[in-house]
Design a protein around this nucleic acid. Structure first.
Length: 557
DNA sequence: TTATTTGACTCAGAAATCTTACC
DNA sequence: GGGTAAGATTTCTGAGTCAAATA
């Protein structure tokens, strides 16, 4: 209760991190060790990750058919088939690459005889299996014993403690989509913990590796087959360790504010430089600073979807628009960004940026596939930024821009404007989501249905109106008028619905969770007497406990 | 050496699940 | 008042960033 909260605050001050304390349920005020740079903990105890139950074979009455005939699969092949069967409703099972990858990996699991029989995926009938899995949704409650860990004696939640069962890779636009993600065994897992507190591996198994590395915060790690990346079992966002990092992230962004003028002055100079790499650096930094682009790492060809960020933009992604008099200069960006989200915006830029872009494009001739900024990459940029300010990297600009935008938007909301405070808040939030290009792809089916409904309704309305025009003082004029009114109401409702659907295009969650300093929001809530519960969900309040406990009405970013 | 890969986080939308509103 | 659809929230896991290790 309140006492606990006060103790938390007190404990946090003792720790030297304002507002940050051990997350619930443990609120004790212990003397905490201060760690030198890079050391995260003294004692770390947990039960390791939870493994999925072994595969259960289909009952005898559920069959798989090939060419209308029953084929009996061995256990492994049946298991992989079940993964596809469970996805039968998913659009990906109509995707060529997905199917090709799946079929290749699936065949590897078949016995030689069966492999000879099953040669075409489109002859396979998984429907009986699919129906069976729909009926028997296993809804096992997660075991509480795996959900927590102890960091220096404090009980904390774990973010992801379940190792997922084998599945088909579902990366969007990834060349790996459809490939089998193999079963992870304890032998594949590295455990990170205190030397004397090694968790018990599942019966009959042993851990691949056990280490005691206080320089990292992960509890367990393993490699996933495609795309061969290391996965980690990490503390929950509500844990002290994560909250601390979150807080530091925003502090770095705040400190960037004081260096921004200097950075801008420098990149303006760079636009005129003799050195092309400096000119490119200057333009890239301008774009990142101004429009919140991601830096754009090189992506591994053939392993990931073809996506882009600022440094990795191609010539074809940028179109320059100049009006007749050459007064307004606009740049049109059109490319696939992170997670294959389309970035399509046209923005005005300064004269020198425009000329430089023009030159970079011309140099490459008509080769649209050529790198627009061939002389810079994220290492170059981050090296440069690090020298200006410790801890400064390119992504900080995105955070800074998001925070400034949010703070400004909220400031604009005066008592006069605010009728419904929560929806006003969402409007402000929406501006940030727009900046960050956080999108939600609309549920296609729903959308098309709605548009069809609207079109049909429009047609009917115009038909009714014509009828009404033609009608003389017949007895049914009144009836017709009523019909028209009814149709108009219906159409209006549909339009509202459509607009709501349109708004869903923006995804407010990502900016709220990762970009907007929660202290801005808390301060705003206090100012207007809005309970934080109306803005942040429970999970979000847990994550931002540090900011909520600070309770600073006068916070300015 | 410097370019590339790996490791460790940090951010991303979709799917799954829970809650509420509506008929 | 209960069944269901829509909406809100949480979980899940893929996809970025960026520093450090490696070749």
């Amino acid at each position: 209760g309140r006492t606990c909260l006060l103790l938390c605050l007190y404990g946090a001050w003792l720790n030297g991190v304002p507002g940050l304390s051990w997350a619930r349920p443990d609120c004790s005020v212990a003397e905490e060790p201060k760690y030198e740079d890079g050391i995260k903990w003294t004692s770390l105890r947990h039960n390791g990750p939870a493994f999925p139950p072994p595969y259960e074979r289909l009952p005898d009455n559920i069959k798989f058919y090939y060419n209308e005939e029953t084929v009996t699969l061995n256990s492994e092949a049946e298991e992989v088939a079940s993964l596809y069967a469970k996805m039968l409703d998913h659009a990906l099972t109509k995707d060529e690459t997905f199917c090709k990858n799946f079929f290749t990996d699936w065949k590897d699991t078949m016995s030689p005889e069966v492999k000879e029989v099953i040669t075409a995926l489109d002859q396979c009938d998984f429907r009986e299996m699919a129906a069976y899995y729909k009926r028997t949704k296993t809804n096992e409650k997660v075991q509480q014993e795996f959900g927590y860990f102890f960091l220096d004696g404090h009980k904390q939640r774990i973010g992801n403690y379940n190792i997922s069962p084998p599945s088909l890779f579902v990366g969007r636009n990834s060349p790996n989509r459809g490939k089998l993600k193999k079963k992870i065994l304890p032998e594949d897992v590295t455990i990170n913990c205190s030397e004397k507190e090694i968790p018990e591996p599942p019966p009959g198994h042993r851990w691949g590796q056990v280490q005691n590395n206080p320089a990292v915060i992960w509890l367990a790690s393993w490699k996933e087959s495609p795309p061969g990346k290391v996965k980690y079992m990490m503390p929950h966002a509500s844990s002290k360790l994560m909250g601390e990092k979150d807080w530091k992230k925003y502090e770095v962004a705040r400190s960037l504010k004081h260096h921004r003028d200097q950075i801008q002055e420098q990149y303006r100079k760079d636009w005129d430089s003799e050195d092309k790499s400096l000119r490119q650096r200057g333009v890239v930094l301008y774009l990142i600073d101004k429009f919140g682009f991601r830096v754009g790492n090189k992506t591994k060809e053939g392993m990931t979807a073809n996506t882009f960020g600022c440094c990795s933009l191609r010539v074809k992604h940028v179109t320059l628009h100049e009006d007749q008099k050459g007064e307004t200069k606009k740049v049109e960006f059109n490319f696939m960004g992170k997670s294959s989200v389309l970035y399509k915006k046209t923005v005005p830029v300064e004269e020198k940026v425009f000329r430089n872009l023009q030159q970079f494009k011309e140099e490459k001739g008509e080769r649209g596939e050529a790198d627009l900024f061939d002389q810079v990459n994220f290492q170059v940029l981050n090296m440069y930024l690090k020298d200006l300010k410790k801890g400064l990297t390119t992504k900080v600009f995105r955070t800074l821009n998001a925070c400034i935008t949010m703070e400004q938007q909220l400031k604009n909301l005066t008592d006069h404007h605010i009728k419904n405070k929560v929806s006003s808040f969402n409007e402000a939030n929406r501006k940030v989501a727009e900046l960050c290009n956080h999108q939600r792809t609309k549920t296609e089916l729903h959308w098309f249905e709605l548009q069809a409904q609207i079109a049909a309704s429009r047609d009917e309305l115009s038909l009714l109106k014509k009828k009404l025009e033609r009608a003389t003082q017949d007895s049914n004029t009144e009836e017709l008028k009523k019909d028209v009114k009814r149709k108009e109401d219906e159409l209006r409702k549909l339009d509202v619905k459509s607009r709501m659907e349109e708004n869903k295009q923006l995804n407010l969650n990502s900016s709220k969770l990762y970009y907007i300093d929660p202290r801005i929001i808390v301060a705003w809530c206090i100012k207007w007497g809005i309970p934080v519960e109306e803005i942040y969900t429970e999970a979000q309040r847990d994550k931002f406990a540090w900011a909520i406990h600070m309770n600073n009405e006068n916070f300015e970013f």
